[in-house]
Design a protein around this nucleic acid. Structure first.
Lengths: 236, 236
DNA sequence: CGATTGCCGACTGTCGACAGTTTTACCAAG
DNA sequence: CTTGGTAAAACTGTCGACAGTCGGCAATCG
């Protein structure tokens, strides 16, 4: 249970409470103010946030659909706990989506897309040079989001957005080490080069390598925190 | 491995209004009792179903996350209307997921999986011979769901389940013609053959062809109902 | 001493109600 | 006939409350 006095975000005042509560919960989960497997009390949350239970429930349903919470009937909502297998699955699905995305993008690579992606890599490099780990992750995700955006399939992009919430969870919760800034830079420039070449096979190879590296970083973290493949902390 | 079937029908469970309302809405949308773009009134629905607005709202949020409804703040929920582009996107994402799934499955094709898939094709053929169009679609989807199930990536399966709701929408709303039973049979047996061969390229080719045919059936339907690519019926 | 049963507290699922906003209906002016 | 504005109606977002249910604890029984 969260400490009663710990109110990481200011009070909620404006409308659209559902989204605000959802954002608050998302941040709280990613920043580990709620531990994996922990049970969330609706009344407690509504008291802490100063809203009624209705928006809290709706926000929780939203987070459930995003894979951050799990609901057990008559038991309430629990923070999603990922085991090693689920972690692999998330990155495998990411690979699936991004492979398809980069190939579609290669078919319709416009100067606009090229410019936007290049600029985003610059931003990412800048972020990687700084100390804000969260921002680095966000800019990284944003680059990949841009790729899928310019791939021209809105539904594919939505699938990636859905997954990205879990991805954030994986990355933030487990990653202990940070990639070196120049590694990040070259890694992403390779993607741009592959796109420039217009060769689908090169694109696929580049994205396979890129995501493989990202996955290894996270999987390495798993080895540190747990030993069993079945360390799912979900209560029965 | 756990049973791949979606929801083991409960015994006495009469509770859980949210799911019941969600099921009702899903059926109503697919069976066109609500037209695409139509606005759903919460009070009307709660009156008709004899429940309060809270479960209706939560069910609507669920349907929104499944892509069957769209919510506009302060405006309410609207039945999702798909234009030609979105339709293409849905089938493109399906291709993305199933390509990945069948390749993963080819890597770990067990006798269990083979048996289950073969049996499901039998069931599908039987259903195709009958007149129940809905059941034919369900058995078809179930076959593909089984493929992704045995592919061994739970998250990939969930992505497919998410998409399948929209897929149902596409198929049921737009398809006017029916594939011949033997076409369906051979089409699916080709997938099994490709899997038996253990050749990833053959699998990819088979699934590409398979989904291409399915998409053409639906896209053909679109040509009948509208001419513009921009026939989105969603209100502003 | 261990297992079972009944009770208690806490919580979820659901409901009806209120306030603010959007939509619609209506009327008047051009 | 169209257009613009105003007011009523309908609807959504939110709230507090009630009842049924679940898990835990203690008293009871074997």
């Amino acid at each position: 249970m969260a400490s009663p006095t710990a109110a990481p975000r200011a009070f909620i005042q404006q409308q659209n409470l559902v989204e605000q509560v959802a954002d608050y919960l998302t941040q709280a989960i990613i920043q580990q103010h709620f531990l994996p497997g922990e049970r969330l009390s609706e009344v407690q949350l509504s008291r802490d946030l100063g809203v009624s239970r209705a928006p809290v429930r709706e926000a929780a349903r939203l987070l459930e659909s995003r894979g951050l919470l799990i609901s057990k009937p008559r038991r309430g909502f629990f923070v999603r706990a990922l085991n090693a297998v689920e972690l692999e699955d998330v990155f495998d699905l990411r690979l699936c989506l991004e492979r398809h995305g980069i190939e579609r993008l290669a078919e319709r690579y416009t100067a606009d897309a090229q410019r936007a992606l290049k600029q985003q890599v610059e931003v990412l490099c800048e972020a990687a040079a700084g100390n804000d780990g969260t921002r680095r992750i966000e800019e990284d995700l944003q680059f990949h989001r841009l790729m899928l955006h310019y791939a021209g399939n809105e539904r594919l992009l939505r699938a990636f957005d859905d997954l990205s919430h879990e991805l954030r969870l994986c990355i933030t919760l487990i990653t202990k080490t940070h990639e070196a800034p120049d590694t990040i830079a070259t890694s992403h420039f390779k993607l741009l080069d592959a796109l420039d070449s217009g060769n689908p096979a090169a694109c696929r190879e580049a994205i396979d390598y890129h995501i493989g590296v990202a996955r290894d970083f996270v999987v390495k973290g798993v080895g540190e925190t747990g030993d069993s493949d079945d360390e799912d902390v979900l209560p029965r």
